[in-house]
Computed example of a mutant assay.
Amino acid sequence: MMRKKELVEAVVARSGLKKKDVKPAVEATLAVLGDALKEGRTLNLEPMGKVKINREKMLASGRMMVARIRQRDPQPHDATEATDTAASPDTSAE
């Protein structure tokens, strides 16, 4: 499980920015994303992916949301590579 502290540290490591600059930006981003989900909005944030709320239920402790997340494959499969290997005859049996 990734917590906010670990997320802030990862952003600091990846961006090279200082923690005092990163933490407020991460907190603001999480607040905006939380508000959007609360409103029932679909998020399309590459490379994280597309987040769509499928169901939600109000509980005594808060709101439970069931979401579907779809991420694109970072490296698209080369269709010609699959057809080239299937189309070329195996000459090792001769």
Rank of each mutant, 00 (worst) to 15 (best):
H77D: 09
A13W: 04
N54V: 15
A13I: 04
S15I: 07
R41T: 05
L7N: 02
A31I: 12
G49D: 08
E81W: 00
M2C: 02
M2G: 02
P47E: 11
T80N: 13
G16R: 05
T42G: 08
D90S: 09
L33Q: 06
V66T: 10
T42Y: 06
R55C: 04
M64D: 01
A31W: 09
V51A: 06
L43D: 00
I53A: 01
S88W: 05
G34P: 02
L30V: 01
R41Y: 03
A28C: 05
G62W: 01
M58S: 15
A60G: 10
H77F: 06
K52M: 13
K38R: 08
M65S: 07
E81D: 08
A36Q: 01
A87K: 07
S61M: 15
T85H: 09
A87T: 12
L45I: 15
M2D: 01
D21A: 12
R70T: 15
I69V: 15
K52L: 14
L7H: 03
L37W: 00
E9H: 09
K4M: 10
R14T: 08
D84W: 12
A93M: 07
A60S: 11
P74I: 02
S92I: 07
A60T: 10
Q75A: 15
K50G: 05
M65G: 04
P47F: 10
E46R: 05
A82H: 01
